[in-house]
Amino acid sequence: MNQFNYLHPASTDQAVSSASSDGSKFIAGGTTLVDLMKLYVENPSTLVDVNDLPLAQVESLPNGGLRVGAMVRNSDLAFHPTVKEKYAVLSEALLSGASPQLRNMATTGGNLLQRTRCPYFRDVTAGPCNKRNPGTGCSAIDGFNRTMAILGTSDHCIATHPSDMDVAMTALEALIFIEGPKGKRSVPINDFYKLPGDTPHIENVLEPGELITHVEIPPAISTKQHYLKLRDRASYEFALASAAVVARVEGGHIHSVRIAMGGVGTRPWRAHEAEAVLTGKPATPAHFQAAAEAALRGAKPHTENAFKVELAKRCVIRALKVATA
């Protein structure tokens, strides 16, 4: 691992000003960043430790929503009584990720910035990677791409976004609050992530020095929710395909539904087309299948991951079935 400066600011203002220089990175749980530093994929010159910032609260909002501090640990969020009761999809998604030890360290803010597990990205000796080394090329397109994305890919990158939490947050339409050198702002989660396009190293809208301070989750009253994750083994594994469903069902009909998919996109993947197919329709398997077909209509498989198209459809269908049962 390279040498780096280590700063330990006591306030958010201080953290933001400390981190505005080039080569600075915030460190929270470190469950992604430290790995990547050991692999020489990330080589920050300064680490700004945000663990002591007062951002670890979960608070109910007057509108019935929930405010989650960026430093709330995944385990604490998953087991928070309000989350378990009102945002089951989020709790299920969090508990399907990683291991208890990692969930005790990983934070809400850090998870929103989780980086891909693409083997070429994570191995500096593995040849070109546009995300790691912009402009060099993508080794995965013609290489080992079994787990790569089938939605939102470009000729420059097909790396899968690995998060579970972010998929649930997307289905819940969370709002991300940011503080930076130019002040405060908030961004809906669906506008937070960027498609790889020809700049796959730019993964979200954060500017240098900007820090996620908290997330607001709107109320999800009277909804049925489910997170389904399909993966190569029962724990400690990223999704081959996952689906988060938040649905309001009235009299056997789908009043409204939000669907997001994980493990298949280059970012957490909101399936607007599938939602449109279902809205106002009876909650029947035939409609679920039509929705799944719509969700994967734009899928573009590569040499080894064609199976993920069918797997993702089945995942959406089953998640809808469980959620609306």
Binding site: P119, R122, D123, F144, R233, E237, F238
Partner: peptide, 11 residues
């Protein structure tokens, strides 16, 4: 797939 995140062993 010479990383434990890509070489899947049972847990």
């Amino acid at each position: 797939n010479n990383q434990m995140t890509n070489y899947i062993m049972p847990t």
